[in-house]
Design a protein around this nucleic acid. Structure first.
Length: 418
DNA sequence: GTTCTAGAAC
DNA sequence: GTTCTAGAAC
């Protein structure tokens, strides 16, 4: 059970009227709970010292909730104390809360926020900050802060805004908070919007390069003459210069291996483990590369161990697509829930659940015994990608379409999850 | 690898 | 009418 503790945003020093704020908060929370109807594995806990504020929230929540709902609760008391008591995530603030938090966490965490987000953040956006493992809070079971910049109406504080502006921004603040919580709960990265637009991804940098290099001097029409197949080399920069990427893209690297977050994850946890040396495909491997395979296997296992520490229920596979779309040998480390917004096609599904996917152990064995990885007929492999949608966990065959498959996967998550 | 979208499927 | 998939992308 993962919990999120949060205060009533912007209603103390921020001076948004509590009735207006509670209405907005409850609306967003209700929307969030509705859109995750099948997931009962989390709790949102509003914490406030003031019982009158809580009363307003409670009566507001009565208007929104349509049934018994244990996933949203309200608690009266000291923020930091309740956070520790309940082992839940939290949000620091520049308001009276900060005092109790500062005393509980110390200045290190605030330095960490500055280090991760040196530029001023945007109002309404959420900025996740992992709590350092040597911190008291971590030891007490609180692993993550979501730093939120919520709007201010107080004229004696920086950047005061009107009620109308504040209401919109408050809604965004709650939405960002819950989106960040959802991402973190699922082991995914939450990237604040500002950071997304300012930081170009490897792909963007590469596409810019390709356009400038290969486009003719003609005025640009739509996507004029992007070099054919340039997308297929997107993985190379990670192997050549992993140090130039943020930890939102590169999970870790050393002299031999770089591990990146899959840009379009097909499951809750989905990373790619690649050798630093240029190796195009499985077919290039020889017997002497067995030690490299061993390294990839070890690194992949470390990743798995790391994620299982937080969620022991996760099941993983690590292996390769026999006919990958991207250049540079890359081993998928992917959790078997396949819960992901970016899993959207039959091809995606079949590439991980048919023999189009080869486990690292099979590759290792083939290399040992045959000294090479032979690919059978391309025609056959491509036909695998068009196979009917069969469940990888139970006997359900020929699932009608992707949305139905996704519902089926949600059911597995809920029934097998415990 | 994704995005986009026409037309098939419902 | 809307949802969903399959195939082109110069």
């Amino acid at each position: 059970m993962i919990k999120l503790g949060f205060p009533s945003l912007s209603t103390s020093i921020g001076q948004i009227p509590i009735e207006e704020a509670a209405n907005i908060a409850c609306e967003v929370i209700k929307e969030f709970l509705n859109s995750h109807k099948n997931d009962l594995d989390f709790q949102l806990i509003l914490i406030d010292q003031d019982d009158q504020n809580l009363n307003v929230f409670e009566s507001e929540w009565e208007k929104f909730r349509d049934s018994e709902e244990s996933r949203f609760q309200m608690k009266l008391g000291n923020f930091a104390e309740i956070i520790i008591e309940n082992k839940i995530g939290l949000k620091p603030d520049t308001t009276p809360l900060s005092k109790s938090l500062y005393e509980a966490i110390g200045s290190k965490l605030f330095e960490e926020i500055k280090r991760l987000y040196p530029k001023p953040g945007a109002i309404g956006e959420a900025y996740p900050v992992p709590i350092p493992p040597d911190n008291e809070f971590w030891k007490k079971g609180v692993k993550q802060i979501i730093y939120i910049i919520s709007p201010n109406m107080n004229p004696s504080r920086p950047d005061p805004v009107s009620l109308e502006v504040a209401k919109n921004a408050l809604k965004e603040s709650y939405q960002s908070m819950l989106n960040a919580f959802w991402a973190l709960k699922n082991g995914q990265q939450y990237i604040p919007k500002e950071q997304q637009s300012q930081e170009k991804s490897a792909f963007d940098v590469m596409m810019d390069f390709a356009r400038n290099t290969f486009s003719t001097s003609k005025p640009k029409k739509k996507s004029s003459s992007t070099h054919i197949g340039s997308w297929s080399t997107v993985l190379l920069p990670y192997c050549e210069h992993p140090e130039t990427f943020s930890n939102r893209e590169v999970y870790s690297y050393d002299d031999n291996v770089v591990i990146i977050w899959d840009k379009y994850p097909k499951a809750k946890i989905h990373l790619l483990v690649m050798p630093r040396q240029k190796i195009d495909t499985l077919q290039e491997l020889e017997k002497q590369d067995l030690n490299l395979i061993e390294i990839l296997k070890q690194k992949g296992q470390q990743v798995i161990d790391h994620f299982k520490e937080n969620d022991p229920k996760l099941v993983f596979r690590m292996g390769f697509h026999v006919l990958p779309s991207l250049r540079q040998l890359h081993m998928h480390v992917i959790s078997q829930d396949f819960i992901s917004e970016t899993l959207s096609s039959k091809k995606h599904w079949n590439s991980f659940t048919t023999s189009f996917f080869k486990d690292i152990e099979e590759i290792e064995m083939l290399l040992k015994e045959k000294g090479q990885i032979k690919v059978c007929l391309g025609k056959y492999l491509l036909s695998l990608l068009k196979s009917p949608l069969n469940c990888h966990l139970c006997n359900t065959k020929e699932i009608k379409n992707i949305p139905t498959l996704k519902k089926h996967l949600e059911e597995h998550l809920n029934s097998d999850g415990q």
